[in-house]
Design a protein around this nucleic acid. Structure first.
Length: 590
DNA sequence: AGCACGCCGACT
DNA sequence: GTCGGCGTGCTC
């Protein structure tokens, strides 16, 4: 018997091994096998067959007593690899718990059968403020097995506690995690909670699949599996006949578009009280002090009422804005903010690589106060301390009266967690050089509103009091936001109307990386239906970092299939002088 | 991705 | 005369 094994390599073909007569195994099981020089590696068995066994090396030993992925999981992994131009092996191995260090597991385990085909169910989008409570109640009442995917391990831990569920994520202990995995496969853990790494958890279908906070960019970090958790679950649900529930107060524009298309059903929202969302004009204030009058008042009032205040500070961004009119310097073609390259005294578009000299006047109003910097947490803390010497002010103590931190402060709390949330410099989030900046701001404001609850207050310090994301959040009008945002995306051909793909190369020198990437760009130049943007150096172009170059491809839904034939050779190491090409499909970070 | 094989510079 | 650089090709 011959076992076909895939490894965590950028090679997309299986390797054949001899299966010793006494070794029984099934597809989806992990094995350790010799590969290359004298090492051995862990791989997943994707096929078993009879055939010519001459010249084959034997599998060394079995890693897990039972298949770690089901037949359906193998298929889903193959689809993810195809869709993201990744390899089957690196995809699968990123979607199973790491092998235990224990010695050889003894084998013999039947492969779980593929489920009989079950009619697909329409995915659901739950947006109501009480969605978490509804989900908890629903899962308690259901008898169907459920897989709940959280954006991060802290959230997975909270949900596991809340649902009294087993954990499959890396925040759990290795033993607990493996036990939960196999218990789920045997139908002995009804509800399991995990992060991305649990997307292939082998629950017997049909199941309920849940994606928490589906808009969260943590659902698509770089690296394998190189696809958004939402897309993986959509596919899994469609193949499984599983029910898919997406949860988010302010969903991704992609998911909203699916509702518009009728591919996803949106549940009616519950209503309830909505907080005051105040736009506080920062003109002439933010230069010297981080607090406007409305925010100062909110802090005073909340401290009287014994309620905490969260001050949200973004990271300083390398973009230039005008302190007089609030305009930010954007690329006229791509509408994304231009990035400051100080060493070159230039502004660069990260999408089309357009380069402009650093202006000394605002192109919109002619003002001279162009400012690249915002308020960082340390500076805010010192300033708030000075203004409120009698309050506890902290960047680390979540129980302080005023807590200063990033948008992470809005995560995972119950409604009313904060009495007020202040965005010290909302424009910092709007100025992020990413076409999703408005969406992100809308989601932050929505999360803040939910975190303060109906009796709280949200203060957004901004020069853009009339920005549509702010207006829509203030008026609790989701439709208004998505209508405008979808219009913008349609006009410029951004997702969800087109798909994007980042192709990058890094090498020993900038020249080798660039040359390699130029070759890759040339390889797809003839493919119809694509927009290929010019090459751009990645990161600050200091000596070392300029060894990374990138270009962006824009294309239709079938983008992966269009570019795969030409680009696969670049991913599977060819004859090349020290360069590595990477492909990131549907990137959500710039 | 590792790792081995394979041809050109400074060292016990 | 060797040790060793990393360029390129392969791994069942």
């Amino acid at each position: 018997m011959i076992a076909e094994v895939v490894f965590d390599l950028p090679l997309d073909h299986p390797f054949s091994y001899l299966l010793p007569g006494d070794l029984k195994l099934a597809c989806g099981q992990r094995v350790r096998a010799p590969l290359g020089g004298r090492g051995t590696r862990v791989g997943v068995v994707v096929a078993l067959r009879e055939g010519d066994e001459s010249g084959l090396r034997p599998v060394q030993h079995v890693v897990d007593a039972a298949p770690i992925v089901s037949a359906a999981g193998l298929d889903l992994g193959r689809w993810i690899a195809d869709e993201s131009l990744s390899s089957w092996g690196s995809t699968l191995l990123a979607l199973v718990p790491p092998p235990s260090r224990a010695r050889r597991a003894e084998s013999v385990a039947p492969a779980p059968d593929r489920a009989p085909s079950i009619p697909a169910r329409e995915p659901e989008l739950w947006t109501s403020a009480d969605r978490d409570e509804r989900l908890t109640a629903m899962l308690a009442a259901e008898s169907e097995a459920a897989l709940v995917i959280a954006p991060d391990t802290a959230s997975a831990a909270r949900w596991a506690r809340r649902l009294d569920a087993a954990r499959l994520d890396s925040g759990a202990g290795e033993a607990e995690r493996r036990e939960a995995w196999f218990a789920a496969a045997r139908g002995r853990a009804r509800v399991v909670v995990g992060t991305r790494g649990a997307l292939l958890a082998p629950l017997p279908p049909p199941t309920t699949l849940v994606l928490l906070e589906e808009h969260d960019p943590a659902h698509k970090p770089p690296g394998p599996p190189r696809l958004h958790s939402r897309d993986i679950l959509m596919r899994r649900a469609a193949l499984d006949g599983s029910r898919l529930i997406l949860l988010s107060g302010a969903p991704s524009v992609e998911s909203w578009a699916r509702v518009d298309e009728g591919a996803v059903r949106s549940l009616p929202d519950g209503g309830g009280a909505w907080p005051q969302i105040i736009a506080a004009d920062t003109r002439g204030i933010l230069r010297n002090h981080p607090l406007t009058l409305p925010l100062t008042r909110a802090i005073e009032e909340m401290s009287r009422r014994g309620r905490g205040v969260a001050l949200i500070v973004g990271r300083a961004t390398g973009v230039l804005g005008c302190n007089d009119c609030g305009a930010l310097l954007s690329c006229p073609d791509c509408a994304v903010p231009l990035q400051v390259r100080r060493d070159r005294r230039a502004l660069v578009c990260r999408l089309c690589a357009r380069v402009e000299p650093l202006p000394d006047r605002c192109p919109a109003c002619g003002g001279r106060r162009l400012a690249p910097f915002g308020w960082d947490p340390e500076r805010v803390e010192a300033s708030v301390r000075r203004r409120f010497p009698r309050l506890t002010v902290s960047r680390s103590d979540p129980g302080a009266q005023v807590v200063i931190g990033t948008s992470a402060l809005l995560r995972g709390g119950s409604p009313g967690r904060w009495g007020a949330v202040g965005f010290v410099w909302l424009d910092g989030f709007l100025r992020v050089p990413d076409f999703r900046a408005s969406e992100r701001v809308f989601q932050l404001l929505w999360a803040a509103a939910e975190a303060v609850g109906g009796s709280g207050r949200v203060i957004a310090q901004t020069l853009h009091a009339d920005h549509y994301a702010l207006a829509a959040a203030r008026n609790r009008e989701r439709e208004a936001f998505y209508r405008q945002e979808l219009g913008f995306r349609a006009e410029l051909g951004y997702p969800p109307y087109k798909r994007l793909c980042h192709v990058s190369a890094r090498g020993k020198t900038a020249a080798t990386a660039r040359a390699l990437l130029e070759e890759a760009a040339a390889a797809i130049a003839g493919v119809a239906g694509l927009t290929i943007y010019p090459l751009a150096a990645l990161g600050a172009p200091g000596a070392a970092s300029a060894a990374r170059w990138r270009f962006v491809i824009k294309g239709p839904a079938e983008l992966p299939r269009l570019i795969a034939p030409a680009l696969r050779p670049f991913l599977e190491r060819g004859r090349r002088s020290g360069g590595v090409v990477e492909i990131e499909m549907d990137p959500v970070t710039t």
